[in-house]
Nucleic acid binder design. Structure first.
Lengths: 117, 117
DNA sequence: ACTTTATATAAATCAATAGATATGTCAATT
DNA sequence: AATTGACATATCTATTGATTTATATAAAGT
């Protein structure tokens, strides 16, 4: 139904998420990321390849290094997706009864007539 | 560094993502989700358990069924996270040179003096 | 040309997980 | 209390994927 599954899959790995958060500060070389994280260099290169294939990063050579930076598209897709859940994200205080204890939105006591699809 | 990795991991599975999107329309019974998706019932129950453990859903009995609905907290966390990338999400047209072809933000030609951490 | 530095790729190992089948539990109806 | 219906749990299998070690490529410096 959506390619968002792929985006979530990419960010599901903790190491890749850390790489993304590192790149939030601007473009970085592979070695720079390696020394920041505690992962071996081939591991970082592999993660960067996955991030690239999913459109999260781009790269360009800089001497013998390679500088990686974030791309906009997947983040816009994620932002658009979460927008569809605005009703959940934003506090809805207009209906007070469903906010008992700030636990959740839609607790509803069992109905007498439970037939309900 | 963050528990967001867990949230992304939960949404990484396509079936779970579909379940979440189904629940966006309101609370649903397990059987209702089973008949919508093409997955066996134990599979759906397992996914719902994972969603529950991660705080994505809550449930309450309704007769012999069990109604599941979305929780707000993880969506708020995701929304807060993506907010940290709003510089990427929002179109930044004030610096024109970096938007060549709408491909990405931070391409920069190689420097003469490449020493750069 | 040779060495060093930076990154990518290959191969192997190991762990995690989604899916199905079978079974258990519990509520509702008779 | 026996049966039916709804859901949960256990177990197994197959697949995917992250990490490491080793190796290849490529650019810089000497």
């Amino acid at each position: 139904m959506s390619n968002l599954s792929e985006a979530f899959e990419v960010l599901a790995d903790p190491t890749r998420l850390r790489i993304v958060e590192e790149l939030r500060g601007g473009e970085r070389s592979v070695g720079s990321i390696v020394s920041t994280l505690g992962v071996c260099q081939p591991g970082v290169s592999r993660h960067l390849r996955i991030l690239h294939q999913a459109g999260f990063v781009q790269s360009h050579p800089d001497g013998q290094r390679r500088l990686y930076s974030l791309q906009r598209k997947p983040f816009r897709a994620l932002d658009a997706w979460i927008h569809d859940y605005r009703d959940l994200v934003e506090a809805r205080l207009d209906r007070l009864g469903q906010l008992v204890g700030e636990t959740g939105p839609s607790y509803r006591p069992a109905t007498k007539n439970p037939r309900r699809e």
